[in-house]
Nucleic acid binder design. Structure first.
Lengths: 335, 335
DNA sequence: CTGTTAGCGCTTTCAA
DNA sequence: TTGAAAGCGCTAACAG
């Protein structure tokens, strides 16, 4: 239970330099005799010195803290993003303050308050809040980058996957396999749902086929309801493009429950390429959103805004390329 | 972008009291004239004052930070626990420092270092690390409570569900429905897997039936492989008790993919009662582990240890009662 | 009940 | 390249 923590003075004393020099040496400041730097580092290591984050923040007036608000912690893909972002923040010397959202509830002012108390330098918002009013209130108090959809029209910088291109690729792929009745279960008003709907629409239109849309929502039950509705139509689809993997998983489950085989009777394609999609159990064809790239871009964008300090940069949207990954849940139609 | 932050001096000045009194008033210390307290609070509110967490930590020598290490962020049930714990910490005035584990990788010294830098008062470990050596190293440096299985023999306090009773209840329930060939897909060496295996064994033995165990692991693919193996046996099971919901989901999916109906041909029961289990899509019968209770017990246990300060309390195990929730994935056997 | 006085452990001028 | 000195914003004795 490391109760005693050596201070910088202890290190300085042991290394035979002043506290100021010890501080510089440890932080890699220029202007320190290389030999002394070694001495200081050695002394620090021997004492098991670890800088007190609070003292450092107070003295330097820089907390290094960046809030990470996770809208849906129960959505594994959100967590994959969060994980990538957290790693990237750490790599760049920031200290992530992760906040977990509640089911069916936007994150909001309470979380922002906490970040303000911590003197967070900025925040990254993963698909939350949905409420744009709230989003603007948060962004007015803290430099933010929003992840999931384009909100530049609100003056907010963001990073998003190329939803439209991804959706179009998925739909075109199904059409290319020979499917004609390709349906789409949407993510309703969720982050990215709009672009995916548009991409699907565009692909169907280009093929001269009618769009077959069921308005759903980003969850298992969205997929289940979508399948129930779509398969009850006189003209049953032979392929379904789902707005995310969770919908796709719910859809496959329901299809199989109804006695349809996947992919023999119905092909299913998802979006996100989450860990579950990649599992053998599902082997879900899906649009891959590279979480690593999202992490890097998001942090880079935030850092840029942080560095620009006061000067209001125009809101930027970074669009991350996405790619279709073909797996076992899709095949040409039979007959 | 709230660049300016009023300090306690600003508040004190405005309220016409000393800084010390302002501090006491704001923190709810006893020994402050009630009228003055009001004044101070009013002044603070008007100025938009928010205490600087770093300064407070430095001066009081109490960070209020508690680390929360999440072993499998991509496991929604882990996140449900984490969410409950985070809420409870906040409620009790702690500041959760959430750390996300990587797939297939224990959390370890690097994360501990970070907590030590933050001068965290303690840590809560959710199902990580698996490596007991590592676990002990972490707990030697920071007051910890482990969540998921009994590790009191290592001198570490922990909170866990009543795995054995839960597993027994699930198995007895299936037996009570009339099933004779009840199989179990285990969680391998994962947290809680041992108790669940034992509970299943005990129930089968009490019924005078042979145990039908497939050693799996806590993931979708564990369920898939388990089903493939079990359904290939000459004596196919008519019911499967899975060591967690993820296994159950993989199992159901695979069963349906193979053409079996659930629950008509095979009943499936899970463990955890995660959000997904409760969804209509799955309607999974499962052993409910109340995340709220886990959160409260875990934080209470940690707080107790924190208060006891130096005096080494003996390691305690808090066992949380669990209950079976019957849903659509289980039914009496046909024929 | 209240104010004064010291720091907490670090960074950062400012001179040397 | 170095050290001395002055705080960062707050809490916690200690007197009144």
């Amino acid at each position: 239970m490391e109760r005693f923590h050596p201070t910088l003075d202890d290190v300085a004393l042991k290394a035979g330099v002043s506290r100021a020099q010890a501080s510089r040496a440890l932080r890699g400041d220029a202007g320190v005799n290389e030999a002394k730097r070694q001495q200081v580092q050695k002394a620090a290591a021997e004492l098991g010195y670890r800088a007190n984050a609070a003292a450092r923040a107070l003295a330097s007036n820089r907390s290094s803290i960046v809030g990470v608000m996770i809208g849906e912690p129960m959505n594994p893909y959100h967590m994959e993003m969060a994980s990538a972002i957290s790693d990237e923040l750490l790599r760049r010397g920031f200290d992530p303050a992760i906040q977990l959202g509640k089911v069916g509830q936007d994150m909001g002012l309470a979380e922002t308050e906490r970040l303000l108390n911590l003197r967070a330098e900025g925040a990254i918002l993963i698909g939350t809040p949905h409420d744009l009013e709230l989003l603007q209130q948060i962004c007015a108090r803290l430099p933010c980058v929003y992840l999931g959809s384009d909100v530049t029209h609100l003056g907010i910088s963001c990073v998003l996957g190329d939803d439209e291109v991804g959706a179009r690729a998925a739909t075109d792929y199904l059409l290319g396999l020979g499917h004609r009745r390709v349906a789409h279960i949407t993510g309703g008003g969720g982050a990215g749902a709009g672009g995916r709907r548009a991409g699907y629409r565009a692909a169907m239109e280009a093929a001269g086929l009618p769009a077959l849309i069921h308005e759903g929502w980003f969850d298992l039950d969205g997929g289940r309801d979508g399948v129930n509705a779509l398969m009850a139509r006189p003209q049953r689809p032979t392929a379904i493009f789902c707005a995310n993997d969770r919908i796709a998983i719910g859809a496959i489950n329901q299809l199989r429950g109804l006695g349809y085989r996947v992919p023999e009777d119905v092909s299913v394609v998802g979006f996100d390429d989450s860990l579950d999609a990649r599992s053998e159990s599902l082997s879900l064809t899906s649009v891959h959103q590279p979480s690593g790239d999202f992490g890097r871009d998001t942090v880079a964008l935030l850092e840029e805004r942080l560095r620009s300090d006061g000067k209001d940069l125009p809101a930027t949207a970074r669009v991350v390329p996405v790619t279709l990954v073909r797996r076992g849940s899709s095949a040409p139609p039979v007959g």
